[in-house]
Design a protein around this nucleic acid. Structure first.
Lengths: 333, 333
DNA sequence: CTGAAAGCGCTTACAG
DNA sequence: CTGAAAGCGCTTACAG
């Protein structure tokens, strides 16, 4: 219950000045001190079970070894994987993630951002980017280190790690084509996010400008269902649906059931993300697999490099995606 | 890009000493300063967009407004909800969660615990408790504030917020009984965790000492499947299975399919937790709903109270659970 | 009600 | 190679 030992305690026990103890304890500076002295310090530290006070160190170095992570909602099955990837990459380097949920609310995002800033995070990993995002503009103006995850912005302010959305959609369209589908449609994600617009553009490019695209209000099952209803009302002949993501696909599946349409016999459906449990649905969902853990890990890595030597060129990393064919796609009847 | 303003900047602009500025800025001490002066300070702070440096404050107050959260694995669908509950409750009070995954590895748990301690968290929320847990004993000896979430320990060292596991199992058994089942079995979670042992004990109590109980090595689909195979080999007549949790139930469902047994026609299965998407399985899983978000929120609340006035009586909060009847249970044929 | 001072536990130029 | 000192940005008894 008594206070943890400080570096002064270690120094006293080792019979040196605390500056020396500090140098001996820090791997980066331990070369500056006599090997024998260093050893004495290390032993003393071990004896006392000394744990450096990270808070004091941060104040002194102006580095907190902490990064802020902004996600829309941890409860959305994608993000735990991203966050885990981030944490795993950060852990290695002694960094810690400070998580904040924005719930897709720009105001809340701003408040969380400021709170994190007040905790003196060294940088941010942001998974909530919109194509035009005032928060990001502000961060850029203030010279704050940021790496974008999963979504990017129209003008590339920051480095970003995303999946190759266009290639993913291309693979989806090609798969349906190969099965013999000719009447394809896209249930697009919100156009305000890069994932929504990039995927929609890729769909148009590969399926042709005439293929119907209906935009969903959000990446949710409900919005997906609503859009699917509109689609089926206006284009009842559609036999192959490429959904903007898995949640939207779930909504589509639900609407097909509502209308007595069988998937995949009457209509094939492809999702995007390959989130957990979509392989256990009936039918198991054909979808584009996104390596979310790796997305997070690479982004964290990039941010760490960025912090080491700031580099103004916002390089972008695009991770390859692949289609996972399961039961929700089949030849049209 | 220039440094953020400090309290000294605010004080100078307001024409007061920084001690006064500090008092004016802190709601708890602002009563000590003249209202007019206080207003001047607030305006100055606003003009400069002053954000207090939390790190400096922490060093000075010896409080970091930060709590460590230990979960087995964020990627397990239960925990995002728990964590979200924690964060929502913490946010209100200006606290931040520092998350760490232990992957059920005691060594890793210890390392994460120390790392968090080195960041001077004010306390811990721990969802990784084992019934006898050396880490918790150590934390208790060191007088560290801890609240347990979801799982508790055999000897009550700390306050804990858990679901009413026994009542949940009772409801499950009763439901099967009401449907007419007489040959019940339990696929128990690991006995080393309170959830595993409490649920198993409750099952025995309600289903009778002769009802078979097979323990799973872990709360995973694979372990559940393995246990289900053993159960069906030794007790082929079982018609009602109560699983230790939903993942185990998934494993059981898989084994039933393997053996050409229909659920619920041949065998009824009940899960535990009501994790996301189990309502979309075929058949939709009947399961005991656990309010994970609330579990996290209540635990955070309890920890915050604990930090305010340490109270050595480890009070325990038990949240009511209810059975959600879906498609995986039916009368025996 | 306000100021001056000390202190929280580190790190890091600066001397020697 | 090591020590003495200053400083990071706050807070909080202590005087007045």
């Amino acid at each position: 219950m008594d206070k943890p030992p400080t570096i002064a305690d270690v120094a006293k026990l080792a019979g040196v000045h605390k500056a020396t103890a500090s140098r001996a304890l820090n791997p980066r500076t331990s070369g500056q001190v006599n090997a024998a002295t260093a050893r004495r310090v290390l032993t003393a530290a071990k004896r006392l079970r000394y744990q450096p006070n990270t808070v004091a160190r941060s104040l002194s170095t102006n580095r907190s070894a902490t990064v802020g992570v902004l996600v829309p909602d941890l409860t959305n099955p994608l993000f735990p994987l991203v966050v885990r990837g981030i944490e795993d990459a950060l852990d290695n380097q002694g960094y810690t993630a400070l998580l904040a949920n924005t719930d897709n609310d720009p105001e809340r995002a701003g408040a969380q951002f400021d709170a994190l800033l007040s905790r003196r995070v060294d940088g941010f990993l942001i998974a909530t980017a919109r194509r035009e995002d005032p928060l990001l503009t502000r961060a850029h103006d203030q010279g704050i280190a940021v790496v974008l995850v999963n979504r990017s912005t129209d003008v590339p302010l920051f480095p970003a790690v995303t999946g190759d959305d266009a290639a993913g959609i291309a693979a989806a369209v090609e798969h349906l084509r190969d099965l013999g589908h000719r009447r394809l449609a896209h249930l697009a994600g919100p156009a305000g996010m890069s994932t929504g617009s990039v995927r929609a553009r890729a769909f148009r490019q590969h399926a042709g400008e005439c293929a119907p695209v209906v935009e969903c209000a959000s990446y949710t099952e409900e919005a997906g269902a609503e859009a699917a209803r509109r689609l089926l009302d206006e284009h009842p002949g559609s036999t192959g649906i490429v959904a903007g993501n898995d949640m939207i696909a779930l909504g589509a599946l639900q609407v097909l059931r509502e209308r007595g349409l069988d998937c995949p016999q009457d209509v094939s459906v492809i999702g995007f993300n390959d989130m957990r449990f979509v392989d256990k649905l009936v039918p198991p969902l054909t979808t584009v697999h996104v390596p979310h853990h790796r997305l997070g890990a690479e982004a964290a890595q990039l941010l760490l490099e960025q912090l080491d030597r700031p580099d103004r060129a916002p390089k972008t990393v695009t991770l390859p995606l692949h289609l996972v064919v399961r039961g929700s796609t089949a030849p049209p009847r």
